[in-house]
């Protein structure tokens, strides 16, 4: 049984640690890292992924590709908590001795691919899924993508490919936080209806509350049960900057930084309340 109380506690801790990392390195993208906290917590604490922190590239692992790398700073505390990297790494991100940059890379144990540029992760994940399928391997491939990167044509090349080849070992999680850098996606080019688009391309699409560990884990379990004969996309409706009032609903929150004082105030106020 999945302990959802634990997942909520972990999500809270990851949120706080992500704010602290941002305070230490304001170049990190905070708002887009706060929309996917529960997604990552569900994957890593909800008995979804098979992984071994001491052997991060073990063949028996499930693959987890993060395509929206800049918006995954919340993965750092999870990697430290699980033992992929040392807990001390969280203290001084972006300092000379640290492997944690504003945008993650493959020097960090737990990151499968380079991800600083958008529109790559799903296609690479598709290659992994195809390779595993051709080897008749049981491992699954998970890919976390952002909605803004759906403006990249390479994403749709990959979406078409996965659907046609019925890559049922692939689960794409779409962090649907509705915002790009300068505006809401719908004001740039409306992406909806997303579920119907993926379905038309041969995918099994589910739409869930991306801040609900219960809903996310249930979706992941349905994927893991198999038998779909098609790739799965979980469209996780999320809020960019989730948990920080100043960021939530601000169309420019992608490029907003909080000062260390604001972070202290936020975390202090939360502790008091």
């Amino acid at each position: 049984m999945v302990d959802f109380g634990l997942l909520r506690d972990k999500a809270r801790w990851v949120f706080e640690q992500t704010l602290r990392i941002h305070a230490a390195c304001p170049e990190t993208r905070l708002a887009s890292s706060l929309s996917c906290v529960e997604i990552l917590v569900s994957l890593f604490y909800g008995r979804v992924l098979d992984f071994d922190p001491k052997r991060p590239l073990a063949p028996a692992r499930d693959r987890f590709v993060i395509s929206k790398g800049h918006g995954s700073i919340c993965f750092y505390p999870i990697l430290a908590d699980l033992g992929f990297i040392a807990m001390d790494e969280l203290k001084a991100p972006c300092s000379p001795a640290s492997k944690l940059k504003a945008i993650p890379d493959t020097l960090i144990e737990g990151y499968e691919t380079i991800n600083g540029s958008l529109g790559h992760g799903l296609g690479v994940a598709a290659g992994m899924a195809l390779g595993l399928e051709r080897r008749a391997a049981a491992q699954k491939v998970f890919a976390l993508i952002g909605d803004g990167e759906l403006f990249e044509g390479s994403m749709w090349e990959a979406i078409m490919f996965c659907g046609h080849h019925r890559l049922e070992n692939l689960c794409c999680v779409l962090d649907r936080n509705r915002l790009c850098m300068l505006d809401y996606c719908k004001n740039i080019i409306d992406l909806e209806p997303l579920g119907e688009k993926f379905t038309a391309f041969g995918w099994q699409a589910e739409r869930v509350d991306g801040h609900s560990p219960e809903a996310l884990v249930a979706s992941f379990e349905r994927f893991r049960a198999g038998g779909r004969r098609r790739p799965t996309v979980i469209i996780a409706d999320t809020v960019k900057g989730r948990g920080v009032k100043r960021l939530e609903g601000d169309s420019l929150c992608h490029i907003r930084s909080l000062s260390p004082g604001e972070v202290d105030e936020l975390l202090g106020a939360d502790r008091d309340s």
Partner: peptide
């Protein structure tokens, strides 16, 4: 046929896919 794939006129996906296959040891 199991080790040949035509991605279509989609060079970006061809390289992305090749990367994933290579990471799986191909």
């Amino acid at each position: 046929p199991r080790r040949f794939v035509n991605v279509g006129i989609a060079e970006q996906n061809a390289l992305n896919l090749a990367t994933g296959l290579a990471l799986e040891g191909f």
